[in-house]
Amino acid sequence: MEKFQKLTGIAAPMPLVNIDTDMIIPKVFLKSIKRTGFGKNLFDEMRFNRDGTEIEDFVLNKTQYREAEILVAGDNFGCGSSREHAPWAIADFGIKSIISTSFADIFYNNCFKNGILPIIFPQEVVDVLMKDAEKGSNARMIVDLESQTVTTSDGEVFNFEVDAFKKHCLLEGLDDIGLSLEKVSSIEGFEEKIAQDRPWV
């Protein structure tokens, strides 16, 4: 996984609440057995007409947001399915950070496995960042994981919380399977114990 670098980019506003995983990547695109190439189908039914032409007023089709690297979204982003195709599509499109008041649990975890930083702020902060995002491509937002801050184009700084272990893995681009396998003796010990205590498992 790539290391998460300090990000200075365009933020796209998506104020809709409950943006679900079927919106992010409709199931017709889940049939690939690869992890890449999903970006072209991100938000497919919101972004494209049936004939493949773009829906003009969808935010990521607007000239100023085509290169967006940050999404500022409504409450409960990523609800629904566990499909990791959702963060794969988001990352493949080029979005590296998503800001909302809340995320669905599974989606939130999936983001960290794919180099995407989901950031939770209270409603009043999201409102400020949404306004900032609405300014378009002349406004650049800064997301700094190291200092746990988001800075608006006006220089207003907001601090956010993130789990220390998740932060570490994202900053260093670590493979968490490798990290867990370093603890294999603990796993073996646990397996021996349950073989005694709960042999039916």
Partner: peptide, 20 residues
């Protein structure tokens, strides 16, 4: 509970899940 594909791989390889 449900998990993503990276976690599926983690469970396949380690039979554990990183959780809080």
């Amino acid at each position: 509970h449900g998990i993503g594909t990276s976690e599926v791989e983690h469970v396949l390889a380690t039979q554990t899940l990183i959780q809080k």
